[in-house]
Design a protein around this nucleic acid. Sequence first.
DNA 1: CGACTTGTTGAGTGAACTCAAGGAGGGTGG
DNA 2: CCACCCTCCTTGAGTTCACTCAACAAGTCG
Lengths: 221, 221
Amino acid sequence: MPLATFPDLFGKTALNSRELRKLRQLATQVRFRSGQQIVAEGEVATEVYGLSRGVVRVCKKLADGRHHVLRFALPGDFVELPRGERHCLSANAIGAVSASRFARSELFEFIETSRNMMRLMLDFATEELRRSQDLMLSLGRNTPEEQLTAFLLGWRKRLPRRPGRVVSLPMSRRDIAAHLGMAPETLTRTFGKLQQKEIIHIMGDDVDLLEIGQSRGCAKG
Amino acid sequence: MPLATFPDLFGKTALNSRELRKLRQLATQVRFRSGQQIVAEGEVATEVYGLSRGVVRVCKKLADGRHHVLRFALPGDFVELPRGERHCLSANAIGAVSASRFARSELFEFIETSRNMMRLMLDFATEELRRSQDLMLSLGRNTPEEQLTAFLLGWRKRLPRRPGRVVSLPMSRRDIAAHLGMAPETLTRTFGKLQQKEIIHIMGDDVDLLEIGQSRGCAKG
DNA sequence: CGACTTGTTGAGTGAACTCAAGGAGGGTGG
DNA sequence: CCACCCTCCTTGAGTTCACTCAACAAGTCG
């Protein structure tokens, strides 16, 4: 993967060169080590982040410590939209992460002044909403096996340039389990079942999606 | 509730009079009877709807007939964002419904030309996203009792001018169950448990939220 | 008045959860 | 280089709780 930075990943196709320059100018490049917290739920949101490299776990906490992993952000994603006085979710680096940091107020103002930028944000929010609805359907209605296959397919689809069958899962089993709303033990057993049925083949952090028929979800592309 | 139509409910505060007039002009007032289908998942999305009066059940279907209720749309809500060649969800009227119908392409174009309108859409999408993330947390992590209380609180908060304790639930138990990802029987029993604990009091379709402490979720208002 | 839908209750099963222990890898320090 | 620790994953055993199946009550509509 070439080392593109966030503004390019996010807005290269839709912003004109002046807007792109402005966006680059607003961004500060920052790095995070594996596991490091990027955003803390409840804190005042003075800045927001756009992901350049790596994977970020985005989750929401309950008062008693239980938490749910909402999504795994990939390069080109905003970790969180620049709305709201405070962060309403937490984010941690999975492996090494590079990101562009923006002052929330500055980014917000830039969005207000640039139609292209606002359109981009709307597109991003719309797409996130669609994905989150798909996940909700999965969470609410599917068996663990269906959930896991749906997750693997969705993850493959989001990975850059990977028409292949083998996908890499950099996040921990625990995180996947917390994403799918099941206990880690259940996830392990579900992986086992899918492998036993020869639907997938597990090779450490990589999984070969042997014969999962593709495509689901609406308005792809 | 005064009979405001959708454009007013949605954009009165943020659009100038010219934009509001334009939006009214694009809208056709339509009515639906109880249970009538408004939008069908998978169909070509030639038009989109904004809700003026009543409640709309918005759901997503699985191939085998299982379905999940994503949300209950209220007056002022769009049923679906005007993106995507095809509808990616279904919508049915709960009780009598009045709505504004827009030609998707016309509304889309108007959004493109009006900054205020685009900002409104972005706000709406952002808010929907936040809500859907809250629901995901609830679906993935909570017990049925917690889910139901969270639903009742969230519903109360969304209802217009209802600081009171009694909320009306116009949707069927089945729909609530499908929204919370549980079987209808489980929902009934959960209602029973909450009543037994004197947390709520059930009066037909109305529920008195006796002593549920309020407020949760981030960036309220 | 009768058919149908919707909500409630009961009984029994099964699947996912909890608790607990046993590897397997990775990193650190002696 | 090896020993050790620690975290992560996996496996096992037992239990709980939500689901399924079924019957019944209560409205609703023709």
